[in-house]
């Protein structure tokens, strides 16, 4: 059996002395796309950030490809939430994408034309080739999201961790992101997405992790996205779950 790209065991995270993740264990399968699903405040983004060491974990262990993250940094790419940065920053789309290459360029060396070309290729992969020179504040929300995605693609990683890439984007961006996910998968890469939209989980992803401070269920979408599991994840918000039940039962069999 191959080593999972990301393996998390009994992870605990607390924020301002409030427990956010509780004994979380996740195993991500290689070559598949996985959605992390759960209600607001369930700790979805926290899980990604803790895995990447961006916020300190109280306890637990995390391994990327069977080792610590620092041994395989270049194989892991992170796409933060769009809101996490100031889009008024004086850079253009190409500059942002080139940031994905900074590690490869190395300390103190400048970005050269070969890197700019690589950045342009990554932009073309998300359908943004025409926008390379545009100031990032003049891009729409969906285009900004695609720039972030291109930055991760430029890294040419094997595992992509994306924080809400589908949040409030337009249809064109949604299509572009889906195409990228497909392409990564075909090349043997692995994708983990924090996802908020229950209805599209089954269409977009292979696996799902249901999370509400602790893991409710994980595995292939068909097995995981059951009404019972959803009820456990979303608790009292039954109306929502009932409504989804009908949608899910129609959407899941439709997929093979």
């Amino acid at each position: 059996m191959t080593t999972p790209p990301l393996q998390i065991n009994s992870l605990n995270v607390s924020y301002h002395s409030k427990l956010v993740l509780w004994d979380v264990g996740v195993s991500i399968q290689p070559g598949r796309t996985t959605a992390i699903v759960g209600p607001n405040g369930a700790g979805k983004s926290t899980l990604l950030k803790a895995a990447l060491g961006l916020i300190p974990a109280s306890s637990g262990d995390i391994s990327f490809y069977g080792g610590p993250l620092r041994k395989c940094r270049s194989r892991v790419a992170y796409v933060p939430q769009r809101e996490s940065v100031d889009w008024d920053f004086p850079v253009n789309a190409r500059d942002v994408v080139a940031m994905g290459l900074y590690r490869r360029i190395g300390w103190c060396l400048p970005v050269r034309s070969i890197h700019r070309r690589m950045a342009d290729e990554a932009l073309a992969d998300v359908g943004m080739a025409d926008f390379a020179c545009r100031q990032i504040s003049q891009l729409s929300g969906g285009q900004q999201q695609r720039v972030f995605l291109a930055r991760a693609l430029a890294q040419k990683a094997d595992l992509y961790l994306m924080d809400e890439p589908f949040a409030s984007v337009d249809a064109a961006t949604e299509q572009a992101i889906l195409a990228v996910l497909e392409r990564i998968k075909n090349a043997g890469g692995t994708v983990v997405c924090v996802h908020h939209d229950l209805e599209t989980v089954a269409q977009y992803f292979d696996d799902a992790v249901l999370l509400n401070m602790r893991i409710v269920a994980q595995g292939p979408v068909i097995d995981v996205m059951t009404p019972e599991n959803l009820r456990k994840t979303y608790g009292a918000r039954l109306a929502l779950v009932d409504e989804l039940e009908t949608n899910l039962s129609s959407s899941i069999p439709a997929r093979k």
Partner: peptide, 21 residues
């Protein structure tokens, strides 16, 4: 010398951290 590193830090600190800076 550290122009590119400082720019990345200013623009997107979490990303800089996640990619190992």
């Amino acid at each position: 010398a550290l122009f590119k590193e400082f720019s990345l830090l200013c623009f997107d600190e979490p990303y800089a951290r996640s990619s190992g800076w």
